[in-house]
Simulated scan of single mutants.
Amino acid sequence: MNRLALLLVAALVAATGTVLALENWPMPAAPALADMVGDPKRGAYLARLSGCITCHTTPGAAPLSGGQGLVSKFGTFFAPNITVDRANGIGEWTFAQFVRAVRQGISPDGEPYYPAFPYEFYATLTDQDMADLWAAVQQTPPSDKPSREHEVGFPFNIRAGVKPWRTFFERPVQYAVDPERTSEWNRGRYLVWGPAHCAACHAPRNMIGGLPDNMELGGDPQMQDGGRSPSLTAKDLTARGYTKGRLLEALRTGITPDGDVFGGSMAEVVHGSTKFLLDQHLEDISTYLLDLGRQ
């Protein structure tokens, strides 16, 4: 009995130490922000481009009042209400808290968001982008619809466990202009790797959800929701019949070169995001993805 008691005490001490270590795991510091005025019209466009509308709005519901479940092998994650409702939305947030949440994936309470929220890619958004998004959110009518709790089982329901995951597997996207490329190519790369976050689905993740070091858009044969995403390399896109014009048309309409249509999450992306984009931006994306000389 004494030995059993000692083992139980040791296990309790170890568990307590683990919890304390996770709770005190260091998180990135909030960066300094420039003081600027946001453009709500541009922010509304960014919200479409970045998938905010698609993820945070269920069909028939008020804009940004909370989204459908994102099913994964870790559980189901629900995008929260991000309207300015003070009780059920983010009406109590400051601009600085909003920026830290979007670009760093950290809540106003200092807790990490699950990487189902693509903050790794939103790290590329500029201070002006964030000011514009904030201005758009401020003009969105408030909704008192409560956010749904994630349906995530043990041990993934321990939010603090995301902290060490971030240390070893988080890949915040860094963007820099390539002076040897055209402005169209550079914009396309920014859109693909930044706000449009194509790699969130089209780069293969490891068994615990981490992105590959090479960050190539080679497709994911085993997505977290059990589906699969195709490769977006220039070689594979060309083999599937895509030209610049056909890729632009597919992103606008959801119709592929062989006359088929996108299904699943890509259909939602077209319906809620890419069909609203400017032709110039769709051309930029197509220019970047179909640059055979880059492969």
Rank of each mutant, 00 (worst) to 15 (best):
D213T: 12
N186E: 03
S183Y: 06
K235Y: 14
Q222M: 14
M215S: 06
R166P: 00
C201E: 08
G227Q: 12
E216V: 12
R187G: 01
S229M: 11
T238Y: 10
F168W: 12
T233C: 11
C201K: 02
R187P: 02
T167C: 10
L237V: 12
N186D: 07
T167N: 09
K235F: 15
G210K: 04
Q222P: 06
L232W: 12
V192E: 01
G226Y: 14
A176W: 03
C198R: 02
S231F: 13
F168T: 14
P221C: 12
L211C: 01
S183D: 15
N214V: 07
P195L: 13
T238D: 13
L237G: 10
M207F: 07
L191D: 03
A199V: 03
T182E: 04
I208G: 04
P230Q: 13
A200N: 11
S229Q: 07
Q174D: 06
P172I: 02
A196M: 15
R171T: 07
A200E: 14
E184K: 09
G209S: 05
A199H: 02
M223E: 14
L217Y: 03
L217E: 00
D220E: 11
F168P: 15
R228I: 13
R228Y: 13
P195E: 12
R205H: 02
K235M: 15
G219Y: 05
G219P: 01
S231K: 12
E184I: 10
L211N: 00
E170L: 09
V173A: 08
P212E: 00
G209M: 07
G194K: 01
I208L: 07
V192W: 01
R240F: 03
A176H: 06
Y175N: 05
F169Q: 04
R166K: 14
W185M: 11
D220K: 09
G241K: 05
M207E: 15
C198V: 04
R187S: 07
R189L: 08
P212D: 01
E170Y: 05
P204D: 09
R228C: 13
D178L: 03
R181Q: 08
S183F: 07
D213Y: 05
L232V: 12
